[in-house]
């Protein structure tokens, strides 16, 4: 089984995000692996452990710091890692998906996994785009994948615990919501050992695509730093809350 995992290195939202001009001030944020990508890596490794095969993790190196993430992926069980050196922190999902698709094209993948979404998917997620560029079917919101021969049984999650089971013939792209098991822990000693011994294959970006979005503005939502206090008696408070919920379609 040949599984390719496409990952995204994104600004961390653990902290406030400073803005410069009409986009994030990429120089003053930390980049981290998209949290859903941890699940797609885990899902890929679980399949490899179940039926054999190789896991290749590929990502776009936006700020020259992807190596750490790739070493971590190796320590978690990936067999091969590839980085596309772009050196453009503002590269949007369309660009990244195109470069990734070009890089994945020759890999003979049976399955391509991507995180179901990322917090910076302003122009959509890379998973469905890679599928479109590679002419493969896409299924997202995936909570488990089992490979059987040249097709896979894929569970997709809807809201509130409901979901559906699909049979998907290979090759396909899946957007992973959650692996069947929590992403495994990679001990630092293993990661550091990978950093010393592993080789990262480097490719240049190839192909061209764009989000086609003109940026007008980017700013934090108007926040007060303190709750807007609802005054009045308990009855009045209750009435105001119910009204508020109704106006937001929440009651």
């Amino acid at each position: 089984m040949n599984i390719v995992v496409a990952i995204k290195h994104i600004p961390s939202i653990a902290d406030d995000l400073p803005v410069s001009g009409k986009n994030v001030d990429f120089d003053s944020v930390d980049f981290v692996l998209n949290e859903w990508d941890e699940h797609s890596i885990e899902q890929a490794v679980l399949i490899k452990e179940a039926v054999g095969g190789t896991v290749t993790v590929v990502g776009v190196d936006l700020i020259g710091e992807l190596d750490n993430v790739l070493h971590l992926a190796l320590a978690k069980g990936a067999d091969k890692v590839v980085k596309i050196t772009a050196d453009d922190p503002a590269a949007d999902s369309h660009m990244q998906a195109k470069w990734l698709a070009e890089a994945i094209k020759g890999m003979g993948a049976n399955m391509v996994f991507a995180g179901v979404q990322a917090s910076n998917d302003l122009d959509g997620q890379i998973g469905p785009m890679i599928a479109a560029y590679l002419d493969m079917p896409y299924i997202g919101g995936v909570s488990s994948v089992e490979a059987n021969g040249d097709s896979a049984t894929v569970n997709k999650e809807f809201a509130g615990g409901a979901g559906a089971k699909y049979s998907v013939s290979m090759p396909f792209v899946a957007g992973v919501q959650a692996a069947p098991k929590p992403p495994r822990y990679a001990p630092v000693s293993k990661v550091r050992q990978m950093a010393q011994t592993a080789t990262i294959e480097t490719v240049s970006p190839s192909g061209d695509a764009s989000a086609g979005l003109a940026f007008k503005n980017m700013a934090p939502p108007v926040a007060t730093g303190h709750a807007e206090m609802i005054e009045g008696s308990s009855k009045e408070v209750a009435a105001k809350i119910v009204e508020l919920l109704k106006s937001k379609g929440l009651a």
Binding site: A14, D15, V32, Y185
Partner: peptide, 23 residues
Amino acid sequence: NELQQAFENTAKSGNPLGQPQRK
């Protein structure tokens, strides 16, 4: 799980709470 989280936070952010180093 909580412990794993503290390890990951320390490795990534330099502290077990997962707070940004800049702060």
